[in-house]
Nucleic acid binder design. Sequence first.
DNA 1: AAGGAGCCCAACCGCCGTCCT
DNA 2: GAGGACGGCGGTTGGGCTCCT
Length: 349
Amino acid sequence: MEMQYLIQSNLSAACPALPALRRRPVDRGEDEILLAYITKHGANKWDEVARKSGLRRGGKSCRLRWKNQLHPRLKKDPFTVEEKDYIVQLHKHYGSNGLSLPLMYFPGRTDNAIKNICNSLTKRKQRAAGKNVPPAAPSSPPLLLPPPPPPETCGAMAWRELPSIQHMSSKRTTNNDTFISPSSPLMEDEDVEFWINSLMQDDPVPSMEDLLSEALHQHVDSNASSTGGAELQDADFWNSLIQELIDGPEPLVQFANSDNVAADVHEMIPGEVVASASTAVSLSDQLFPYDDMDYEVMQQNSITNWPAGYDFDDGELQQNFFPLSRQSTMDVDHCAEMPCDRLWGGLDF
DNA sequence: AAGGAGCCCAACCGCCGTCCT
DNA sequence: GAGGACGGCGGTTGGGCTCCT
């Protein structure tokens, strides 16, 4: 069987015209090999992972398998009706070119899964409307601010990053006020300066509630004249979210929008820690490398979000909890009930 | 029971941007 | 600056499942 796989794989690479041999499902053994390798060496350098793990796969294939199926923070349960509805709304706003953008609203979901939902709904719609209906163009220009997330699927990480979103959006007025995704690489020197200046002042960054209030008013003001009633419901949601954040504990870690910015700030201001979301996730993986037992325990408990933050103390990494939202607070309680003496850190992503 | 249609979703492809040497 | 490696993203494909006839 292994020889057959080897032959098929090589044939597929050499001769893409062999459709029957091109697609090969990943079996459990391959998953175990990949997990074991990543646990030991980390999830980067995917070509190296593919070569050294012994898997007869390409680097991209390994990466996709990890990202879409094996990553411990993936949410595996089916999309809810509310999530699907919200994907449709986002798709209308951003169009087909923004399929990855909704990711920030759906922590633990993959771009592939969201894309499949989009495709499925689009096809269904086309069938219902008759054949050969061209895909709908974006119904409105990109939003300056993200629309409110559905209550049960709110990705707290997205809102936690609002300060820099707000900052960048307000500066990029020449860019048609295009909304900048938190994961966007569009980070310029002035953005780094903003972060550094913010950190060096006593109370430099506006409070979360101030930012959300400002965002709410901008959002409502800019839409009130054209839409009407729906925006009032949005306002109610935002108000409740703001109140929730006001009532909740403060985070212990500052976040930047990219690893590069985080590194720059950390280098220029010794002792100050600015972690990007991906860095925090990476740190959590390093601090709490899982083994098979932990992984099974987590699967048994359906743990999908692990709200924990990290900070430096005297040059050493320390673990701290910071509930990101009411949803995450529930997860903390859930984690506490785990029949396991280790907790996973990390962030919604 | 059998076969086809519809659907879901994992896997793959090609292009492109970023980073590193 | 050039070129290769790498990874992200949008689009596509194929396998398998369910439902209906």
